[in-house]
Simulated assay, not measured.
Amino acid sequence: MNGFRGQVTLDGPSGTGKSSVARDVATRLGAAYLDTGAMYRAATVAVLDAGVDLDDPEGIARAVAEADIEVGTSAETEVVLVDGEDVAVRIRGTEVTRAVSPVSAVPAVRRLLVERQRALVAAAEAVVVEGRDIGTVVLPDATLKIYLTAAPEVRAERRAGQLGVTDPARIAHIAADLRRRDAYDSSRADSPLRPAADAIVVDSTGLDRAAVVERVLDLAGTAVRDPA
Rank of each mutant, 00 (worst) to 15 (best):
L193V: 14
A75Y: 09
L113R: 04
L54K: 01
L139E: 04
A42I: 01
L29Y: 11
G12W: 02
D167C: 10
D11P: 02
G12L: 05
E66F: 10
G12T: 04
H173M: 14
L144Y: 04
D141Y: 06
A63Q: 02
A169W: 11
V154E: 11
A151Q: 05
Y147F: 14
P168Y: 04
A199K: 01
Q162G: 07
R180W: 13
S101N: 07
G206E: 14
A197H: 15
D190L: 11
D208C: 04
I174T: 03
T143R: 08
I134F: 02
V106D: 00
R158K: 00
R92V: 06
L29A: 05
R188Y: 09
A32Y: 08
E130Q: 03
A105S: 06
G131Y: 00
V80M: 09
D203S: 07
D177R: 13
R188Q: 10
V114D: 12
G30K: 15
V129T: 02
L34R: 06
R180Q: 08
E58C: 15
V128Q: 01
R5E: 14
A189S: 08
G131Q: 01
R194F: 12
T9R: 02
P140N: 03
R132N: 04
V121D: 03
S104A: 13
T97N: 05
S187A: 12
P13G: 10
R159A: 00
V106W: 00
D55A: 13
I146K: 01
R181W: 13
A46P: 03
R188N: 08
E130K: 02
D49P: 12
L178A: 05
S14C: 13
G17Y: 05
E85G: 12
R5T: 12
T36P: 04
A151Y: 07
R118A: 00
T149M: 05
S187T: 10
R92K: 10
T149R: 15
E153Q: 15
D24V: 09
R92A: 09
R41S: 08
P102L: 13
R170C: 05
V121T: 07
I91R: 05
